[in-house]
Amino acid sequence: MKTIGVLTSGGDAPGMNPCIRAVVRSALAQNVNVLGVEDGYEGLIRGNFHSMGARDVGGILQRGGTILRTARSEEFRTPRGQREAIRQMNNAGMDALVVIGGDGSLNGAMRLVEQGVPVVGVPGSIDNDIYGTDMCIGVDTALNTIVDAIDKIRDTASSHSRAFIVETMGRMSGYLAVQAGIVTGAEMVLIPEVPVNVEEVAKNVDEAYRRGKTHCIIVVAEGADPGTTEIAKEIDAMDLGFTTRVTILGHIQRGGKPSAFDRLIASRFGHKAVEFLMQGQTGVMVGLNGREMEPVPISVVTSKVKTLSPEYVEMARILAR
């Protein structure tokens, strides 16, 4: 193996840059050249590649986002787009590819694997919703961003006796919302996996007020039902003692310097990805199982859904009393 490519795709996650750095320097240590693919699968189709040396990835450990940039590519979903991507890889002499990204990115990697392209995937998703790994790049940083925001919101909520509804990312997974709810002491957490009705939410708010609480924090994953707007509207209409405010954290959760944990885990993921390629292990994703990095077939990763631990959901409910 003489040359490998590395790309980041889908939503960015804090820690992608440390992973890119690890891929580049680990490959160079094996006398393997590295081509950076700009703009994800779109760049793969366009042949937007550039050579990356050790100095090209210097000083990026602390940077959020991805220096290779990322994009979503509708064209790559088509057989024609995939054929063009493979043609560009062959023209550039790219022998294998490391794909850093979430579920959609790994599905794209699977399409290449099916056509004989050596690929190793790395899980990068702040939602921690990728099957086959205990943790993904970006989760820890995003969670710390949410916790910091809620801690600050609690200060003003107590000062004004308000109920704050804080929306986190998580269209399909409530991982961030549940974890944040537990460690910030939220009065309630709403997630896509566990539907509730507005009456249940109102009951919790009313009980918090009756117990003499000076505030009420409800953490809502963006994919929860009912959603943030509906909850706020209904609670205000019921006049439960607290005035209601909504805070949607949005893309602030994706940005910022990666935490020490994310820098370390991303570096381990990137180093192990290169190691797998050099060992001839392809068509796999690097997964964290306990403390160990293990290969997980991408076909398995993309065919199964990672479920949220019921233990965390129950803990969030009990500790909110």
Rank of each mutant, 00 (worst) to 15 (best):
M278S: 11
A13P: 00
S159H: 11
L308K: 01
C216T: 11
G132A: 01
C216V: 09
S303A: 15
I100V: 11
E187K: 13
A92D: 03
G40P: 03
T228C: 11
V246Y: 07
E314H: 12
G15A: 09
V147D: 09
A320L: 01
S173T: 13
E42W: 09
S259N: 03
I235M: 09
A260G: 07
S26I: 08
E38D: 05
E74A: 15
A186M: 05
V119F: 04
T247A: 10
Q253W: 09
A29W: 05
P123L: 04
A71N: 10
Q253M: 12
R171M: 11
V120K: 06
V274F: 02
R25M: 08
Q62P: 10
A186C: 08
D225W: 07
G287R: 01
L68G: 00
Q253A: 10
D103S: 07
A54V: 11
A22G: 04
R21M: 03
A85M: 12
R317K: 15
Q279T: 13
A224H: 06
P79H: 03
D225A: 14
T214R: 14
L190P: 02
F261P: 00
N48T: 14
L68F: 07
D134G: 07
H251T: 08
D134Q: 00
P310S: 06
D148I: 08
A27W: 04
R21S: 07
L190S: 00
V147F: 04
D236T: 14
D95W: 07
L176N: 10
G36I: 05
G227R: 04
D56T: 09
R72I: 13
R77L: 15
I182R: 04
V220H: 00
E187W: 07
A221C: 06
R291A: 15
F164D: 05
R55V: 13
E199Y: 06
N128T: 03
A180F: 04
G287D: 01
N107V: 11
Y175A: 12
L112I: 09
D39F: 09
A237M: 11
K306R: 12
V305T: 13
G223A: 08
P297W: 10
Y131F: 15
A177K: 05
G11A: 06
T247C: 10
G185Q: 09
V98M: 02
N289S: 15
P226C: 04
R210V: 07
V32P: 11
T3Q: 03
S303V: 12
E200S: 12
G81Q: 08
I60M: 03
Q179C: 14
S259K: 06
G181F: 06
